[in-house]
Design a protein around this nucleic acid. Structure first.
Lengths: 340, 340
DNA sequence: GGCGATTGGGAAAGCGCTTTCCAATACGGT
DNA sequence: ACCGTATTGGAAAGCGCTTTCCCAATCGCC
């Protein structure tokens, strides 16, 4: 059985006693009409032979594929996996296959993947989470993307409006600012921010948004500690903050993962969050909705963002760059009770 | 610029003043030697023209691709996304691209994806989490897989040893059994299991393993409540259990997600986990390591499992089906303190 | 009934690459 | 010098499909 090579369209045509052209037309249905009788004969022959079209050959002949590429920093991170889930569902609806590219945040890998997707003649590319402020790399990516676009490809980005493509803009600034305002409204007066590395756009945007809101509402600037944009980063940052003596009554970690690390650090230090100190995060990661105390955060419609990005990249190409804004919604939970 | 179609190998050859064959050889390096001088000329021409090989054409000519397919039930589920992360990293090392197929647990979609991957002439397919006890569907999948294998493809599964392919067998039974023993060792005497749907293999295996361990150690059979294999399922199941009056001093949820739902249900019902009741899960999902109380669970090396699966599927094909076992490790945390 | 207008099938030309198979040149040994 | 043997470049045959283009057959209409 392993001997007989896969049936090709010619085999089907021969079996059905028609020409190659007719066989192709009968199977694709599309362009021109085939007499029903022949049509059936071809279909029958195809099933009999267990024919499977060769997508690569089709891609060659048609000059277009059925795949879209998705670049994420780390698919194991719930932020990205949720986005990926939404995008994958949408892709399925369109009959598209998703190429998952896990960049690990390495510029070099990102470029390699971009090149690979170009080679594959993938129909579209969605970039999520490669927003760095490293201009050298951004330029490099932009160039690759441009030549990909020139070749007829389509691309969109999530959250990084610095790339020359359509993008789903996440209102990090606004969300964080709104959060700051709500916290001040709850009675908090001295804030600290646990932020990620400086060259990470999401992180700096959220930090800046929060700081702006806080400044406008209280007239003072929040302190901050920077570390990794991860659970452990949050843990370390919070520990350092606590060591230095917590001047703050309220801490904003720029994402939920860091916030959870911070929660753990507080627990270990004997600081009771929700009483001695308030903590808030950003993203509203589903698996983290049950931590205790319930984490105040800014909810992002992550799955929708993935869906949106695909719609954007698949939609009618337009002359000017499209920006699709997505806003977060502050969700107050027990980690930031009203302050008496 | 959008006008000039992408440079082809012929263009490169012409530009370099060599034949198509030479150009191809110069670029791939492999099979035969090309005079260094020509080699350089070709390379120069390629960069000058911004040449990108067409992977589809290469696939056609070579008869093999650079992609592997990964089927998961839900990429947004941290269990799968962690596996996917490990697999993606490994794939990157091998220069392979990953096709992500999100089946949503729907048999029909799973089959569609399998067909699509076959059409793409994917080098290999890894199936994760399609382990159902629905024999009809399993049979169908097995058939598709068999014809894929006959066509020269390679496939491996994760956790479902009922498919006729190499598989990374997760010792769900043993892990759950070990957990049961440890819990009994801690002093617990009456257990209840929160389990998923009956046709979900992981769920039934874990349930059975736990029940076996419990029975052997205490002589009694744990009660159980079935619901969805998710956070909400765990929440509902636990609520029901509490309503019926908790005969149990210890609850095993067959995965961490359900366990977290259970934790939430307890909190809402005023039951203090770690004191009034013990709760344990399975998987040791990273993002859940900071819930309170710390969740006792069975740690699975998820990322390694993904890596292993790819290695398995890429390794030397062997006559008999290979099974690569992976065992979990019980991790005791505060949710199951020693019982005085 | 005759004519142009449809209609539907088939031959064949690619799509962009790899890889035989050949030919030509260079090299070594005696 | 001469012949056999490596080398290395090129022509061309595919890989499996789509799609023009062409042609025969059928249709409709005056």
């Amino acid at each position: 059985m392993a001997g007989e090579r896969a049936a090709t369209l010619s085999d089907v045509a021969r079996e059905a006693g028609v020409s190659l052209a007719t066989a192709s037309r009968a199977l694709n249905g599309s362009d021109r009409v085939v007499r029903p009788e022949l049509q059936e004969r071809v279909l029958a022959a195809a099933t009999k032979l267990g024919y499977t079209p060769n997508a690569n050959a089709q891609a060659m002949a048609r000059g277009s594929t059925e795949t879209v590429g998705l670049l994420v920093k780390d698919i194991a991170d719930p932020y990205f996996s949720t986005i990926a889930g939404g995008l994958a569902d949408e892709a399925e609806k369109h009959g598209l296959l998703v190429m998952l590219c896990n960049t690990g945040g390495q510029a070099e890998r990102e470029q390699k993947f971009l090149a690979a997707l170009r080679r594959q003649r993938s129909r579209a590319i969605v970039l999520a989470g490669s927003d760095t402020t490293d201009m050298g790399h951004t330029r490099e990516v932009a160039d690759l993307l441009t030549s990909y676009l020139d070749g007829g490809g389509r691309a969109a980005a999530i959250s990084q409006p610095r790339l020359p493509v359509d993008t789903v803009v996440i209102d990090n600034h606004g969300g964080a600012k709104a959060l700051a305002e709500r916290l001040v409204g709850l009675g908090y007066r001295r804030a600290a921010v646990l932020t990620g590395p400086e060259d990470l756009l999401v992180s700096t945007e959220r930090h800046a948004g929060f700081a702006e809101g806080w400044l406008e509402a209280t007239g003072s600037k929040p302190a901050y500690v920077a570390d990794e944009f991860s659970r452990d980063g949050g843990h370390r940052a919070m520990s350092r903050l606590l060591e230095d003596g917590p001047e703050a009554d309220c801490v904003f970690a720029v994402n939920d993962l860091m916030a959870v690390g911070a929660l753990a650090a507080c627990r270990q230090a004997g600081v009771e969050v929700g009483k001695d100190l308030a903590v808030a995060g950003f993203d509203d990661i589903a698996t983290l909705r049950d931590v205790t105390p319930g984490l105040t955060t800014v909810r992002l419609p992550l799955a929708d963002i993935g869906r949106l990005a695909l719609e954007l990249v698949l939609g009618e190409p337009s002359a000017e760059l499209r920006k699709q804004s997505v806003h977060g919604e502050v969700v107050l939970r027990e980690s930031t009770p009203p302050r008496s």
